[in-house]
């Protein structure tokens, strides 16, 4: 700091050197970075670090002491069949996200051609992504309720035999919940894909057309290889989303009727009767590790190509 003060000192005869100017710039550069870095450290890395630390303790949320627990939280998590089995429900969402990516790719490809109303359709597909998760959940809750929209329509159409308790039927309810996720997030994928498709040089298309390639051939042999990076990114995001799915099932079924997910389980453990913050943290760490692992695997696969 004294160095800066010296710079403004009128009695200091020495002219500023170029290196001093550069130093000043660097100082400024770090000064501006300090605040965001500090916030990042305090509100992201420190809690994350503490989460890992807590997972080795036993703590009920009120006791003044946390008891050292070693790997026992992890032992409970992996030995008790009821915890990891809920991971099976993620498969519904995983399958859903693959469907979602495929749909997004096809729609993005179609929308990337200039035609009347293409922007309107972009808006239509993107709109659900802008909706609040709670609003989406409420909307579909009313839609699938026994006296809700869907059953009313079916009754109106005379299809009484098709009427069922949609949200509590085992298996079916998970498929419906996964479809809600598709509906909600497909627009986001479409936008990413369109952006990627439009960055492909038009010369390549022209060349392909000259060679007589049809639309599906263009999609598979030109578009897809060129947007491989974006597909990979979307895949990572989709898998992450599938593993940590929470909002939609929690708000619609509360995790009942076989729709519980890993995060809902963790929430119940951490904040239910007899709260266990340590075990809850262990859940979060395991989830984190899984996502890390999947990301790494996907990174490697993309790099190999």
């Amino acid at each position: 700091m004294s160095r800066i003060a010296n710079l403004n000192c009128p009695t200091c005869a020495k002219p500023q050197k170029l290196s001093q100017l550069k130093a000043q710039r660097i100082l400024l550069f770090f000064a501006f970075l300090t605040v965001p870095l500090f916030l990042l450290l305090v509100f992201t890395y420190l809690p994350a670090f503490n989460m890992i630390r807590y997972s080795f303790y036993r703590w009920d949320g009120t006791s003044p002491e946390m008891t050292w627990f070693g790997w026992k939280n992890y032992e409970i998590l992996f030995r008790n069949p009821q915890y990891l089995t809920v991971m099976a429900n993620c498969l519904y969402y995983l399958a859903g996200s693959l469907v979602q990516l495929f749909l997004a790719l096809v729609v993005a490809f179609i929308l990337s051609f200039k035609f009347r109303g293409s922007n309107f359709f972009k808006g239509v597909f993107f709109f659900p992504y802008l909706l609040n998760g709670v609003a989406v959940a409420l909307m579909f809750l009313f839609f699938f309720e026994p006296q809700g929209t869907l059953n009313t329509i079916l009754r109106f159409l005379g299809a009484e035999s098709a009427i069922t308790l949609w949200l509590i039927k085992p298996g079916l309810n998970n498929i419906l919940l996964a479809s809600i996720s598709i509906w909600r997030y497909v627009g986001f994928n479409i936008v990413l894909f369109i952006a990627a498709i439009q960055s492909i040089s038009s010369e390549i298309y022209e060349a392909a057309e000259v060679d007589g390639a049809n639309r599906s051939q263009i999609l598979w042999f030109i578009v897809l290889p060129n947007i491989k990076m974006i597909v990979g990114l979307n895949l990572i995001l989709a898998v992450k989303g599938a593993i940590s799915v929470f909002e939609v099932p929690f708000l619609i079924t509360g995790g009942d009727w076989g729709t519980s997910t890993f995060v809902i389980k963790a929430l119940n453990i951490t904040f239910g009767a007899n709260p266990q913050y340590g075990l809850g943290s262990a859940f979060a760490v395991v989830l984190f590790a899984m996502i890390l692992l999947i990301s790494a695997v996907q990174k490697l696969m993309i790099r190999e190509d």
Binding site: R58, I76, N80, Y83, G255, N268, G272, A273, N274
Partner: peptide, 15 residues
């Protein structure tokens, strides 16, 4: 409380 949390059957939890 200890057995509850180890077993995953928290008696007053509805799950």
């Amino acid at each position: 409380e200890l057995v509850e949390s180890y077993s995953g059957i928290v008696l007053w939890n509805p799950d």
